[in-house]
Design a protein around this nucleic acid. Structure first.
Lengths: 156, 156
DNA sequence: TTGGTTGCAAACAATTTGCATCTAA
DNA sequence: TTAGATGCAAATTGTTTGCAACCAA
């Protein structure tokens, strides 16, 4: 096996998310490969937002055989499984983040000076989207609220 | 895409927006060129969302010398002047729309099946973004609320 | 006159894809 | 065994840029 996968989080392979991921692959008729496992681990056990390129770097620390193409081919699997969330803030590349314990609707506050993304709860937004869609006789597939802001040069 | 705009609006060159655009160019030390005027007209007197490529097609109906490069170089001028608004819905190309009479905050409802974009008023969003940003000691630069939805297969 | 603008084509950058090889099942 | 998965490199696609010709002021 290329790359020990249990260095960062103790007993990481016993974490239930592993089971979820393996079962998802199997259920979809997809194979459980070393590369997919490495990419999953790097993607899911991350606490921040990352790009495909960031993910490639991290996954390679776990299995150096991982290629850029496989990262791009695996990301849709991760997002469709619900384990990872795609975050598009209007740049020419996408961000992703682990979807660990996601429940309530989140808005993103983007610091325009640093590009840092802060996720904040915005539970009532969910209701708002539904209400608007209903008026148009539509059903919500997804929604996002993004606020670009900059730090106030804290006076006094 | 909106058709030939000079047929819809009478005396189009007397519309005050022309003055605004020319004054904006001059104020910025930019030249008033035929190409910029054609792109402005195609961009501003359109009632729908359009891509850079759509805009190129429309602008060429007014001045066939307009090139793709000039469209891309003019779009930032139009958005910075406030005459045109950029709408990014997470696709790999951007949409734009005329900012005629825009006052209140708008949300976009995107029909995921047809890619049609519907703009709806969401005035309270403005307040919400400000409140959130304030809590983080930040000031809002811009915000967007997007709802992806699909038509309900109208029963009965 | 002359420095900003233009069209063209080449360059870019993120992402996708064709293909020969590899491997999970 | 064998169909699905991989790495590599080339292709794609929306957008940007270098440059010589052009033209608004």
């Amino acid at each position: 096996m290329a790359g020990d996968t249990s260095k960062i989080i103790p007993n990481i392979e016993e974490h239930e998310s592993w089971k979820t991921f393996r079962e998802y692959l199997t259920a979809q008729g997809l194979r459980v490969t070393q590369q997919r496992l490495a990419i999953f681990q790097a993607a899911y056990f991350s606490s921040d937002h990352y790009t495909a390129e960031d993910l490639l770097d991290e996954a390679r620390k776990l299995d150096e055989s991982v290629s850029r193409a496989t990262v791009y081919r695996t990301l849709p699997i991760l997002t469709e499984s619900g384990l990872v969330k795609e975050v598009d803030i209007g740049k020419d590349y996408k961000f992703y983040m682990s979807n660990q314990g996601a429940t309530t609707f989140k808005a993103q506050v983007i610091n325009v000076d640093t590009d840092k993304i802060i996720e904040i709860d915005a539970p009532f937004m969910e209701w708002y989207g539904k209400a608007v869609a209903e008026k148009l006789n539509m059903e919500v597939v997804s929604q996002r609220l993004q606020i670009e802001a900059r730090e106030v040069p804290s006076s006094q």
